[in-house]
Design a protein around this nucleic acid. Sequence first.
DNA 1: CTTGACATCGAACGCATGTTCAGGTATCAT
DNA 2: ATGATACCTGAACATGCGTTCGATGTCAAG
Lengths: 226, 226
Amino acid sequence: MMMVRKSKGLGERHLKILGFIQEYQHEYKHPPSIREIGENCNISSTSVVNYYLDQLEKNGNIERDRKISRGLRVIGPNATVDTLRIPILGPIAAGLPLPELQPGVNYLTENEANAVDVARNLLPPKDKGTDLYALEVKGDSMIDAMINDGDIVVMKRAAEARNGEMVAVWLPRNNEATLKYFFKEKDRYRLQPANPTMKPIYINKDEPLEIKGKVIMVIRKVEMVS
Amino acid sequence: MMMVRKSKGLGERHLKILGFIQEYQHEYKHPPSIREIGENCNISSTSVVNYYLDQLEKNGNIERDRKISRGLRVIGPNATVDTLRIPILGPIAAGLPLPELQPGVNYLTENEANAVDVARNLLPPKDKGTDLYALEVKGDSMIDAMINDGDIVVMKRAAEARNGEMVAVWLPRNNEATLKYFFKEKDRYRLQPANPTMKPIYINKDEPLEIKGKVIMVIRKVEMVS
DNA sequence: CTTGACATCGAACGCATGTTCAGGTATCAT
DNA sequence: ATGATACCTGAACATGCGTTCGATGTCAAG
């Protein structure tokens, strides 16, 4: 009996194979072999698997590296994407000192709890992915930067900044940490809140001002009641 | 001559191998074979590669599936992570109708420009990853939800919500879209802005109220001046 | 009924690839 | 000197795994 071809020219066997490849990749972190696909999709012959794999390739659902063991990958919503695991160094709050990236320390050799995985294509294209770290916002003190309690801010270590960049700074004058847009003016620095209704802070150039890093991303996980 | 062991018991050759595996995975989307590692790290014998791979495994830098071709993966900051490609359906602004996920439409068959890749471990653990879509915020109208112009909000399609969840709603009364925390009270709905200094909106239960989805994440890319 | 496209099977072929082993060469402490 | 340890070599071996091919079965069109 002929198989029924569903949407996009894919039959149920195509879909089963496609699904299995994804599951397998999820579980073993590497693609399955032709024989493994066959066993799990009730296909007794490797040539039949190859047959379907060819079709899936023509159809644009997978890519294959011929002659290479397990050289296949699915294309689409669940495709493998380069990610960066960025360590969460600690909390950021108005009164607390800012955690910093210590050179020479190997963050995250094992643990994945204190980190965020971010797709590389979400970062600025020219960014190399180095000197990145993240902070977890505690309290409402960053609310003028449109950043809430619990938000994760992704930072890039930097001691200087250009006009218009959002920076994390330590203000010895007030003894507090803050996130502001940075502008260098004639004889002073202007620290502008993200919220346009709020007024900037001015720091004279002879006053101390410690730039700890640039904010490159903010991630907010909104709770879902379960 | 003895190799110099650097930090964590890793010599330069270990690091070279580790780096090569990452690069290779980056480029070909599957792990390299032992022989490929050897060729690219100037190691003439497969047994030596195996020798180093064993050490890297003992050291916790990689994992191996013995007997399986290309069955190795690095553990650490650049490890492969499950991601979800979420389509960006369109803009969200006060005056515009809310874009919605149309059932049966295959989003993202090819393009990756109109999507965000999000690590699965950033989503709520119980979420299956279905019915997700994203909207790009236009304008300052969501500022009371602590959401800025240009932010990406990740949504889950839903027609109902539980108390305390942030929802995207269309308010026929005002003819506008908005993002608010949702609370059902005796005879009315309370739509609470995220910003605690702002007042809620009350909607009587007999008034129309269209819940389009729940907000599960907000992503803000902060511009970097280059 | 014949033909041909499609789906399937089983087996054989051969290169790709992980594994193992018997030995080498340094460097260093005893 | 003498091991001990770490590093390296080359080759052989066994099997994992993609590829290919002839044969069979099914169904729709001619």
